[in-house]
Design a protein around this nucleic acid. Structure first.
Lengths: 249, 249
DNA sequence: GAGTGGTCTAGACCACTGT
DNA sequence: CAGTGGTCTAGACCACTCC
């Protein structure tokens, strides 16, 4: 009924008692049938009211091409950078549409972070946790854990506290204040079902996926200066990556 | 038990009767608890034998940087192209490790395909369906629907039949035989739970996600010449995208 | 044949939502 | 308060796997 369009997005699907009567099955059978649709992300349940056809909704477009403009603006004076943080560029939405959270912490480097940074395991890292939620929906649009080597970040004490967030001009400007110029950003993208905790954090149901990005930023000498782990609700996110090819001859 | 490491990947988790006895619950309760773990992709079920902790396994790395080398090789003579199709480069595995399927068809352009190609809706498209399965596992590693405007592809009749697949040298060589030079490849990436049909096709369980890529290739004049829809099992795939930034000054 | 998970029934009580 | 879904029980039969 959904795939034929008989049930449109937003419409309620037959209730469990309906299905029991219509197909002569028991409650558990009707429930597990609905469970399949939920697992496919075709329907969502609203406690106490019913089960509804989900409207597929890609709202946030995350285009890697924004890094180019972000870098170009990273050295501009504050006034010109204002309102041009990473966030607005990443989504095409205005800065008013978001609420931000930032938490700063220090942690010893795990094996894989240390290996990527090229430091000793256990070295002190500045770990910054960001989340942004759209004011309309209330649900977070991303969760980010960003890592910097503490000794490097400490050269600019402004970077060590969450009070200066959201930072106007984005990470590339922050790194510039440390004398760092980024040359390449590599993103490793995977996807998987959300854990129960992530469903909670992102405000999504089990019938969805999450996209995990490990973003590795290297300076002009190839040293890794920042690593971010980015968690995105896949049902509201589209990633865009453009590869420009060298001309022949 | 899984997250504490008490149950290692590959190990069997307690059976349903075990759980019933241990926690004094009914069968359905024990089953639905296991269902949560399955939905999170933490365990997989082997009919008749038991439920086992899944080993997280990223095997296929799909690096967009391969396009650069692919383009450089696209004009080489056949001997030098051999064994250097898109497949091997994309995965790092040898060409022996795969079995290929290709099916060719023509279809009228849907709204969105026509809009992207810049042709009339209903215009004839060459639709090529590819799949590759690793010989070790038997399960497909990707499903690709590739679209070309039929009138364009028809300039080289070799491109119209599946008999010449797998084509040595990849799509960039195929386009070269049409006099087309690619300048940019844009990939739009989303993820979602698999449908029941996709579980079947890809040989994956419901406790996984699929990655969907729409790949749009444009020539040096900005015309879209190829569109591909790529479906990947997310539990065995990692996408890699590198953004090179222009130097300051 | 014994043990595994897959499916199903017929009931029960509860929490949440809207009227 | 009626209707929704969330959870649970105590049984049953079946298909698959391995010994």
């Amino acid at each position: 009924m959904i795939s034929s369009g008989e049930l449109a997005p937003g419409q309620q699907v037959p209730t469990e008692p309906d299905l029991m009567a219509r197909y002569g099955v028991s409650r558990m059978t009707a429930r597990s049938a609905l469970g399949v649709l939920r697992a496919e992300g075709l329907v969502e349940v609203r406690q106490g009211t019913g089960t509804y056809v989900r409207a597929p909704q890609v709202k946030v477009r995350r285009d890697s091409a924004r890094y180019h403009g972000e870098k170009a603006r990273a050295r501009l004076p504050l006034e010109e950078r204002s309102g041009k943080g990473a966030v607005e560029d990443a989504t095409g939405l205005g800065s008013d549409a978001f609420e931000h959270d930032a938490e700063f912490d220090t942690e010893p480097a795990t094996e894989d972070l240390a290996a990527t940074f090229g430091v000793e395991p256990g070295a002190e890292l500045l770990c910054r946790t960001y989340s942004a939620r759209s004011k309309q929906e209330g649900r977070p649009l991303w969760l980010i854990h960003s890592y910097l080597v503490y000794d490097v970040a400490a050269k600019n004490p402004d970077l060590l506290t969450a009070e200066n967030e959201p930072w106007q001009g984005g990470t590339l400007n922050q790194l510039w204040t440390l004398g760092i110029e980024l040359a390449a950003i590599t993103e490793y993208v995977t996807a998987r079902p959300p854990t129960a905790a992530e469903c909670e954090l992102l405000g999504i149901g089990p019938g969805t996926s999450v996209i995990c990005i490990r973003k590795v930023s290297a300076d002009t000498e190839g040293h890794v200066v920042e690593i971010s782990d980015i968690l995105l609700p896949a049902d509201r996110t589209e990633l865009v990556y453009t590869t420009k090819l060298e001309p022949w001859q």
